[in-house]
Amino acid sequence: MKVTMHVNGRQVSGEAEGRTLLSAFLREELGLTGTHIGCDTSQCGACTVHVDGKQVKSCTMFAAEAEGAEITTIEGMANADGSLSAIQQAFQDYHGLQCGFCTPGMVMAAAALLEEIPQPTEAQIRHHLDGNICRCTGYHNIVKAIQAASGQPVAVAAE
C-alpha cells in the first residue's frame, strides 16, 4: 500500500506492507538512517521519533498507522542553518555519548521531555529516560547534557 506522511516538515510517500514498521519505513523507504534499530523489541529506545509531537518507539508502530501524521526524526533536529540544536550541542559539550548508537533516541526523548517540562529536575530526567538504554556513558553525562540544554546549571562543569 502507499503510505503518505509529513517527515521533518516535508510530505513524503512510500510503499509499505501492513507489517512494515515505522522504523523500517523511515530507514529503508525514506533513507533516514539516523533513526537506529537497536533491539527491535521496544526496549532500547534507539528508534525513538516524534509522531504528532509525541515521543514513540518507531519499531513498535506500523508505518500504516502513521498515515497523515507529522513525524520528526533526528534528521529534523538541527537548526535551519545546519548548526546543532541546543540539545545536540549540549550532548557534544557534556560528552553525552561515546559510541553514539543510542544518541538519536536520547536526543528525541530529551526534546520531548523539555517540551513538556522546560526545566526538569535530575529525577525527572532519569525517570523520563526509563525507555532509552545507553551501554557506554552510564547515563550521567546524558543527564548533564539535558540539564545544560534546559538552561540549568550543571553540577560538574564540562572540561
Partner: peptide, 9 residues
C-alpha cells in the same frame, strides 16, 4: 506504566 514512549501509544 512502561516508559514515556510506551505511554504515548
Amino acid at each position: 506504566i512502561g516508559d514515556p514512549a510506551v505511554r504515548n501509544r
